[in-house]
Nucleic acid binder design. Structure first.
Lengths: 226, 226
DNA sequence: AATAAAGTTTAGGCATGCCATAATCGGGCA
DNA sequence: TGCCCGATTATGGCATGCCTAAACTTTATT
């Protein structure tokens, strides 16, 4: 049990704050209890109870049957944990050589336990980086985070060009799949073709044309060239 | 909740195993429930309940009114956690520059959360060290630990010579106190004088004679020169 | 508008792990 | 032998965090 902004928080509370933060970013407006439950792999009943607790702790505002929204303090907590998570991912990969697709799970555990002192030492050692190995932005010490102006890969149309920026870090298999094909954050591409009816995209990365569809295409975040 | 040797263990269980292991090493024979309670800062009632649980888990054998002893599995668990703890201490000090007297508290938390994979990477990075920064031996991957043939500093008599090996790692203030005076593990000394009635010892470390008594002298472990 | 489906919350339980109080046991001393 | 004190345990309580089942609200369909 640690304390952030005067609020006693457990791992569970931190995970809920993170989940609500992430869901709110994906589709703004209040977040449904069910969505939270699904994301965390608990039953809706459990989520409902915890959401109520976050409300009582002043971390969120919950209107029954309507959804949850984080308060300023709740967002702060989420960003604090996010900073821990992403710093740890980068650190584990760079300093300890943990494989790219394993860092997420390790960080998931350590993030709740990292002291401010260690956070600071790690950030300094890494040179206060702005992005983790998945390309996700790392909140600053002051908990400011770079705004996301990426699009999902599968929202692009033929002829579109851009740069692959990141992928949801909770999908190590996707990371490995792309890495195996030589596609990693920073890779430039051009959409060659798009199959209708939710079909895959054909995109040129360097010399090769790759076929990418399904959930993978939906989870890939890209920055379009103007 | 992790799993060691087929037994599901929580941080609490691991802490109890560690405590019993340490107490058994200090004075062999079965360990009293009360001693465990005191070491962990819980009431005897709580310790009694947990000791019973360790028994049920097959980690210890507890004979009411007689005391507790770890089983083979229990010792294994304790050594596993000890290995985590000491590797972490060394790693934090060496790779992240955490001050010598802070590493214990950080390691105390992280030891319960360290994955086998990370343990292995850290051990390799450190070159499979045999001792942590306090001079305590680190159990091997196979959980063998170097036998302790040290004596407590205050058991020595004038004329005795030896090497300061380590100090209980749960006393950062003692560590700092000694470090401030230029005394660290490996330092050779000779006992100059010993005050009677439990008084302090006068010992020469290098050129200087230091006066050391009380709990500090009792906690310092030394190796005597033959 | 009535009803069905989907989403949400409440009620009741279970396990962990801590505490305090109070009953009980065991060994030493008179 | 009997008594007392300290160690041990039993009992009941509290908080976290998860579950299932059942009740309830909202939204969609007919």
């Amino acid at each position: 049990m640690s304390v952030h902004s005067g609020v006693p928080t457990s791992s569970a509370v931190e995970d809920y704050a993170k989940a609500i933060y992430a869901l709110a970013a994906e589709s703004d407006g209040p977040v449904s209890t069910n969505a939270v439950a699904e994301r965390l792999g608990v039953t809706p009943a459990s989520a409902s109870a915890m959401v109520k607790r976050l409300d009582e702790l002043g971390l969120a505002r919950h209107v029954p049957y309507r959804g949850v929204e984080l308060t300023a303090r709740g967002s702060q907590l989420a960003l604090e944990v996010l900073r821990h998570h992403r710093l740890l991912e980068l650190y584990l990969a760079e300093s300890l050589g943990v494989p790219w697709d394993r860092v997420h799970d390790e960080a998931e555990v350590l993030e709740h336990v990292l002291s401010e002192e260690l956070e600071e030492l790690i950030a300094t050692k890494l040179g206060n980086p702005k992005r983790d190995p998945h390309g996700d932005p790392i909140p600053t010490r002051e908990l400011e985070i770079e705004e996301d102006h990426t699009l999902s890969f599968d929202s692009l149309e033929p002829g579109g060009r851009g740069t692959f920026v990141r992928i949801s870090d909770s999908d190590p298999q996707m990371l490995r799949y792309l890495a195996d094909r030589g596609i990693s954050p920073g890779a430039a591409f051009e959409i060659v073709e798009k199959q209708p009816f939710g079909g895959p995209l054909f995109a040129r990365f360097g010399d090769e044309v790759h076929v990418i569809g399904g959930t993978l295409a939906a989870r890939m975040r890209v920055e379009v060239s103007t």
